[in-house]
Design a protein around this nucleic acid. Structure first.
Length: 813
RNA sequence: GCCCGGGUGGCGAAAUCGGCAGACGCAACGGACUUAAAAUCCGUUAUCCCGAAAGGGGUGUGCGGGUUCGACCCCCGCCCCGGGCACCA
């Protein structure tokens, strides 16, 4: 009989049609079973899916299907991070309205997801550019404003004088405008909106502990560093002018070694202290240079202000400098320089010939030559008046206390994290719901007036001011207080706002009275498993955590953290091993792969080629291998589904069933802890090889047990073919809703234990013994083995290590 | 510079608790089937040495040390690759 061959298009389109909006993919709040919320990061609708998406969603979908099979009530939603700059860039380039472009991309990408067969509850689809969604961004903004968590301050933006427009950071290329590559970007100060994430800095840091074990350590470390808590002290240095300069230091124990005070170039005092126009010009230069420079090593620059300050501890008179390495945005914008005990101060003072004086020596060794290199460790304080002889640790505490009780400082904590600037001078985003009135000042839009709709008939030119500035009917508004003519805020929100809470909206996506119903959130939160790229380890994930804490404080939710578990998948690299990019021409299009090999093959490949957390190079030849594997699976099942002749060989039955149950154990373990689906799929391949080997000899009963379980094991990874074969063997109902096959340890058990015999750690023989054979017997048999004896000849056995059922090591001399 | 990852055959990888290094797949090679090819099925494939062969032996997880009966795995010191932060006082 000719074998049926595997036609992926026919099968996949058939099952796509049957399943894509199937209620089996739906999650209902009151459905039976323990809840399981599996979430993948929502895509930006840039045009088409890329392989990174395919990988992300294949991992999540495998997990969702497995959890369904384990009987959970699985919530597996999807949405669109639909606001953002590329839509505007596309509008400029193609003269197409951003909304039109975005919706078209969403349609394309959604159909790709359908074709790939992801099991998603599409009733919950959320698109962040819709007023039904972004009105709640605005609502949250108002809530934060009420609580003093949203505020306005001046901040620098990138400005292209050629376009006369504000540029996003990603539009700045090598310090120049992306559209005018020879025009250097300038910095302009604008009033902008900020969210006070710093109010939660301590809590965001503290709660990291509760995420340990659930989130990758790497991500937690990155977040800790990003928050950057440092404990130290603030100390006032009195100036001869009568003012005081406040500095922040983590090493107040070294204050007797401070040989100058250094101000950030932007520090307000520099204007006051510096008289010479020449010096003023140099300071201005430092500020401008800082705006231009990207990250990297920048040579130190400095200039003496002409002023002096007094060390409140020693009374010493020290010069006040301005240094380009002192940041206005951190601490107080001023430091005391202790060149003997700080690398940067050392470099600066060395360069400008400022004194270097040691005031801490190592506890257990000689102080190194302080003129050659600083000593930055803790030690014993010396030459420091009454504090001499204290350890650095003690001195830090006691000197801070001394400063406090004498009114010239105190212990203080600073954070590296800054408030979140959410203002964007862009069109395609959520309008910030504020109104500027000449008479009444800055006022919030009344809640009842939400949403502030983003106008749609706006021309995007990329030139001139922010696009909304030019839309008169948007801009002009009546003041909510006095009723007079006022103007709307024309800045829109950073798109990280959209993605900070979308996963809550999935739980109650059509609520028009509130962002969501709190009771429904309690049902589903926290997210059991969040899956996405490590690129979002800091910003998205820290903003999301912040948003959760704000919502909790408002009383909307009860959970402190959004996601109990986070998984960060690796990148999909091009054939050449570097990131896929259009310019490198190494991009692989999922559509082409699906058309050529099928969605199942494609999904199988991204899961098989590497463990999911690792980067994964693309290799099309290897994709072909996955396709051949599915061909083998298909032939095996179909020809056995309607097979007439059966054999009877209990040994073969036992072998095949043993392999089956070993495979069940393996895959169940992989889902339980490591998610190394590459080894899960390898295990199914091994099972397939075993079934090919035993096929002719199997009984009808054995095959009858094996085939359904075999198909179920494959179902999380290759759902279409699994459905088809499930039907082929005469079963009904979707496979991914069948109970996961039960593991039987007795069936998985080998007949005998293979014992490796080593002599001095080298393998010299193997023994088959019955399980549980006592140590003494194992040792006796091993010593009696002729192969082993050859190595014992003329030597003395000094030690024997026996691991029952596993290994014997004979140590000889 | 600091903080994380990682380095295993020709390639992607596996070895989950310190116990057989290289499962599974790709590629390559050989065989069966075929008029032939493709497809398929079966097999070989870390490396070096001895042997006509059967077989046997040595070496091998980036490098150098250490701990251990035993190390891809643990410890110390390096080298290389990737990522994050980058003057954070």
């Amino acid at each position: 009989m000719p074998e049926k061959s595997y036609d992926h298009n026919e099968i996949e389109l058939k099952w796509q049609q049957r399943l894509q909006d199937s209620p089996h993919y739906h999650a209902d709040d009151d459905a039976p079973g323990e809840k399981y919320y599996v979430l993948e990061m929502l895509p930006y609708p840039s045009g088409k899916l890329h392989m990174g998406h395919v990988r992300n969603y294949s991992i999540g979908d495998a997990l969702a299907r497995y959890m369904w099979m384990r009987g959970y009530n699985v919530l597996h939603p999807m949405g669109w991070d639909a606001f953002g700059l590329p839509a505007e860039n596309a509008a400029i380039k193609n003269k197409r309205p951003p909304r039109e472009w975005t919706l078209e991309n969403i349609a394309t990408m959604k159909s790709q997801m359908h074709r790939l067969g992801f099991g998603i509850d599409w009733r919950r689809e959320v698109s962040t550019c819709e007023p039904e969604y972004y009105r709640w961004n605005q609502w949250f903004f108002l809530k934060m404003y009420e609580r003093g968590l949203a505020y306005r301050k001046k901040a620098l933006v990138n400005w292209c004088p050629e376009c006369a427009t504000v540029l996003a950071n990603e539009q700045v290329v090598d310090g120049c405008c992306w559209r005018h590559e020879t025009t250097p970007v300038e910095q302009r100060a604008l009033d902008q909106w900020f969210l006070k994430i710093t109010a939660f800095a301590d809590e965001l840091l503290e709660c990291i502990r509760s995420l340990e074990g659930g989130w990758p350590e790497r991500v937690l470390t990155m977040q800790r560093n990003w928050i950057g808590k440092s404990e130290g002290a603030e100390v006032d240095f009195r100036l001869e002018t009568g003012d005081t300069v406040r500095v922040f230091t983590t090493r107040i124990d070294t204050i007797f070694g401070a040989t100058c005070v250094i101000l950030a170039p932007e520090h307000p005092f520099t204007g006051k202290l510096v008289a010479s126009p020449e010096t003023k010009a140099r300071i201005k230069q430092m500020i401008d240079a800082r705006a231009q420079q990207g990250p990297g090593d920048v040579p130190k620059e400095g200039v003496f202000t002409g002023a002096y300050a007094f060390n409140p501890f020693s009374g010493e008179r020290v010069p006040v400098w301005v240094g380009n390495f002192v940041l206005m945005g951190y601490g107080t914008g001023a430091i005391m320089a202790v060149p003997a005990h700080d690398e940067r101060d050392f470099e600066f003072c060395k360069q400008f010939g400022i004194n270097i004086r040691a005031v801490v020596r190592p506890a257990d060794k000689e102080l190194p030559d302080i003129v050659k290199q600083p000593f930055t460790d803790y030690g014993i304080v010396e030459n420091s008046g009454q504090w001499s002889g204290l350890s650095s640790e003690d001195a830090r505490v006691r000197m801070a206390e001394h400063a406090r009780s004498n009114g010239f400082g105190q212990a203080a904590t600073t954070f590296r994290i800054k408030d979140w600037g959410v203002s964007r001078q862009r069109y395609w985003g959520t309008p910030i719901p504020m109104i500027h009135c000449e008479a009444c000042g800055v006022l919030p839009v009344p809640e009842s007036d939400l949403p502030v709709l983003l106008p749609l008939d706006v021309e995007i030119t990329g030139q001139g001011k922010s696009p909304l500035e030019n839309v008169a009917k948007f801009r002009s508004v009546a003041c909510p207080k006095c009723g007079g003519a006022a103007r709307r805020e024309t800045d829109t929100m950073d798109t990280f706002v959209d993605s900070s809470w979308y996963f809550y909206r999935y739980c109650d996506p059509h609520n028009s009275a509130a962002p969501f119903d709190s009771e429904i959130i309690r049902r589903w939160f926290p997210i059991d498993q969040y899956i996405g790229g490590v690129t979002h380890a800091i910003l998205h994930l820290i903003y999301s955590r912040f948003w959760t804490k704000v919502m909790r404080d408002i009383g909307l939710i009860q959970n402190d953290e959004p996601a109990a578990n986070l998984f960060t998948q690796g990148m999909v690299l091009g054939v050449d091993g570097s990131a896929m990019s259009k310019s490198k021409g190494n991009v692989v299009d999922p559509d082409e792969m699906v058309a050529k090999y099928g969605a199942d093959t494609c999904r199988l490949f991204v899961l098989f080629a590497a463990p999911p957390e690792k980067d994964m190079p693309w290799n099309e030849a290897s994709v072909g291998g996955q396709r051949r594997f599915l061909d083998r699976v298909y032939r095996l099942v179909t020809r056995n589904a309607d097979r007439a002749q059966w054999a009877s060989d209990p040994a073969a039955d036992r072998k095949a069933l043993r392999k089956l149950h070993q495979t069940i154990r393996k895959i169940t373990d992989d889902f339980t802890d490591r998610w190394h689906f590459n080894t899960s799929i390898a295990a199914i391949m091994e099972l397939t090889n075993e079934l090919y080997a035993q096929e002719e000899k199997l009984s009808r009963e054995a095959m009858g047990q094996i085939l359904p379980a075999y198909i179920q094991l494959l179902a999380p990874f290759a759902p279409y073919i699994a459905e088809e074969l499930w039907e082929e063997i005469g079963r009904t109902g979707p496979v991914f809703r069948q109970p996961w096959p039960a593991f039987d340890p007795d069936l998985a058990q080998e007949d005998a234990a293979e014992i490796v015999v080593q002599v001095n750690g080298k393998v010299r023989g193997r023994l088959m013994v019955s399980f549980g054979l006592p140590k003494e017997d194992v040792e006796r048999i091993a010593l009696a083995d002729p192969k082993v004896q050859a190595y014992l000849d003329g030597k003395q056995v000094v030690k024997v290590i026996v691991l029952p059922d596993k290994l014997v090591n004979l140590v000889v001399k």
